[in-house]
Design a protein around this nucleic acid. Structure first.
Lengths: 218, 218
DNA sequence: ATTTATTTTTAGACAAATCTAAAAATATTT
DNA sequence: AAATATTTTTAGATTTGTCTAAAAATAAAT
């Protein structure tokens, strides 16, 4: 049985493991959790003790198979709760993160599986991130960043990389939501902005925006 | 902002205040929380510091107006989550307590009010306990213990005093649920058992059972 | 009204999760 | 390859919530 704090660390280590190849550094974890490196070192000992990660001094952290499975179950809970908040309680997608961050620590397998069924076994959360099933399997969905797209092709928005309220609210103002479709007109070499044809209007998205929007060719 | 532990203590103090007249003793709290009197003394200092209770050494604890309102909001959350678990996730009424005990600490007013609306502003939880509204008002419902009833009158089961899984499962086996109706046939002087006519059968309930069933004359 | 019993509080300790400051190990630079 | 910089760990302190054991206050009983 893990504490809230242990679960938070494990989740961050899992996410970092997705993009990093080697071990995860103490500093990388500290930065994500917004804590001091010394606190991370302490927590590493606890997670290692519980066989969720491997670690040797001054080398990075590696997540174990047990850690991986455990992390996926936490992420499963987080994302299912997000779906609940949006689909059932009419939260906006920029309002769900903090509450889901609390709800993900509720310990009841029956609860989360019943919630999954109640929601109709959703495959993705409100930000387009995949929801692990009860076994920990993560559904794959084709997607690429808007920055990687080809001109004169049609795409559908299927996810966001940055899930900050600021970015999501920006998308709201542009009327861009998951499921929105558009044609990519032009990649601007100069500033890497992307101009799209969306709802009969030309819309230019900055490099930062384009680099945080996941799309799929249609 | 209160910790989980502070909220648990406050809730217990609230419940004890409902039945006790004078101040709530350290020991009474310790027994309910299943902890040591010294731990209670420590926590009393914290709750007093936060103006949720008043207390002077060796005298009992009294809950303040602020403490009362805070406690009601915790109970509101607990009971609304119980309704959610039973109505939406098909939990049985004997399975909801522990999970609701965790869920009640989730801190989001928006969440709880949205949940309330989603559930259709229920007045009572699955055990027949009243749910405080967003203002903290508690709907009153007429009820009495089965032990207090009159023979040859009809009653409806409207609540349980003991919410333990053991008692609730006993009621399940007898097919007694909230809303069940029956006629009280006989109060046995000898052992204070109560015989009722329920679903065309005579059923004798022990004093313990009868003393934990809330009913309403119909 | 003393003595005895119970309750409550205090004092000191411990585990969990954090911090600061300093030491140790590793990386980087010239 | 030595000097410098960065990262990581250790050591010791703090806060929260708990505990045990002893002291203090209150309640009960003879």
């Amino acid at each position: 049985m893990l504490t809230h704090s242990e679960e938070n660390y494990l989740k961050v280590i899992y996410h970092l493991s997705q993009t990093e190849d080697g071990g995860i550094s103490t500093n990388a974890i500290a930065q994500k959790i917004d804590t001091k490196a010394s606190s991370v070192t302490d927590m590493i000992k606890k997670l290692k003790e519980k066989k969720l990660i491997t670690h040797q001094k001054y080398q990075g952290v590696f997540i174990t198979a047990l850690g991986l499975q455990t992390a996926k179950m936490i992420i499963r809970k987080h994302r299912l709760w997000e779906v609940f908040l949006v689909d059932k309680l009419n939260f906006n997608w920029d309002e769900v993160h903090d509450v889901a961050e609390e709800l993900e620590h509720i310990k009841s397998e029956k609860l989360i599986n019943a919630l999954d069924a109640f929601l109709g076994y959703p495959k993705e959360d409100p930000h387009g991130d995949p929801i692990p099933n009860a076994k920990g399997e993560i559904p794959y969905r084709e997607k690429e960043l808007l920055t990687e797209t080809e001109e004169n092709n049609n795409y559908m928005c299927v996810g966001v990389k940055d899930t900050s309220a600021a970015f999501l609210q920006y998308l709201d103002r542009q009327k861009i939501a998951l499921g929105s479709t558009f044609m990519v007109l032009k990649h601007e070499n100069f500033d890497h902005s992307v101009t799209i044809l969306f709802q009969e209007n030309e819309l230019t998205l900055s490099k930062v925006v384009a680099h945080n929007l996941f799309v799929k060719k249609i």
